[in-house]
């Protein structure tokens, strides 16, 4: 039977779909898509943020400058170190924690809340807490001195380049591991229970059940977490910014986003900062595409 208005059920659904999606699309266009396009446009121009003069077209000059700039290349190196140092432990440890939570019978909710709690804190508060911990007279030094049976050794958490990088990684890891654990917990929870039961009936132990059943079927979640974690790490800003504001040296943790901030806001060079942000966007886009491409061959279905 045809609907009275002449629209099929599918068309009706589609229309309502558009109605619901339109506000989000409009907001996305205004607050995300337009700034992205604008940044792309600005990246081919030189413009001082304070100047009233119109932007001057410079072609690829901002991009060629960046590829020769020691400062920018140092930021690329710092971002790569931070991303690799944070993203891989985040992925592995959050998966282990999720498996642990799902394997215990009691206190599941408690552990979920405990691990997730740091994610609720703002980055500023998190960094301030850790600044106290990493202070030369803070508990990080005291803890290591107790652990190694030493006295008065300063591990220079906020001053030596290697330790400083490690400090930013620890803060970020601590803040986000709980969030990704919860994502994995929901992924593990969505695997049909009868698959585990079948494996156990067939004589699989808990490790075999995890490795041959849970892990392969978690592939979509692992992909989601890896993309989200990597993008988050590439966009890291506030931890480094607050550490530098507190006196930590800039050079070892001057990541790309921080360099963008300095170039645009402190140096007023919005064209050059836009070129940096476009390059960062392309890197994120490339890795996301790569991860999707690699994982597409083995999509999971529960039959």
């Amino acid at each position: 039977m045809r609907p009275k208005q002449g629209f099929s059920m599918e068309q009706k659904k589609a229309r309502w779909g558009w109605i619901f999606v339109t506000p989000a699309l409009i907001l996305f266009s205004i607050f995300s898509f337009y700034p992205m396009l604008n940044a792309f446009y600005e990246s081919f121009h030189n413009k001082n943020l304070l100047s009233l003069r119109p932007p001057r077209y410079v072609g690829w000059a901002n991009y060629t400058y960046l590829f020769q700039s020691k400062d920018f290349l140092n930021s690329v190196k710092n971002t790569a170190i931070f991303t690799l140092g944070t993203f891989i432990p985040l992925l592995v440890v959050s998966l282990i924690l999720a498996a642990f939570i799902m394997s215990i019978k009691k206190f599941q909710r408690f552990f979920q809340m405990a691990f997730y709690a740091p994610a609720v804190l703002s980055s500023v508060v998190a960094a301030l807490i850790w600044l106290l911990i990493f202070d030369p007279r803070g508990i990080a030094n005291q803890g290591l001195n107790t652990l190694f049976g030493t006295s008065g050794v300063n591990y220079n958490w906020l001053s030596k380049p290697g330790m400083l990088r490690l400090s930013t990684i620890i803060v970020y890891f601590w803040k986000y591991v709980g969030y990704f654990t919860i994502v994995f917990v929901s992924g593990i929870g969505s695997i049909p229970h009868n698959l585990h039961e079948a494996a156990l009936i067939d004589g699989a132990n808990r490790w075999q059940d995890f490795w041959y059943i849970t892990f392969p079927l978690l592939k979509p979640t692992t992909l989601l977490v890896s993309i989200m974690a990597m993008i988050q790490c590439l966009k890291t800003f506030s931890t480094q910014y607050l550490f530098i504001t507190a006196g930590a040296p800039t050079r070892p943790i001057n990541v790309i986003t921080l360099n963008i901030y300095y170039t645009a806001i402190k140096d007023h060079r919005i064209g050059r900062a836009s070129a940096m942000s476009i390059l960062l966007f392309l890197v994120m886009f490339f890795f996301t595409y790569l991860q999707l491409k690699v994982s597409k061959t083995e999509e999971v279905t529960y039959m």
Partner: peptide, 12 residues
Amino acid sequence: PNGRNLGSPTYA
């Protein structure tokens, strides 16, 4: 800290 260790930007 690498010299006479009288202070550093990382202290309060």
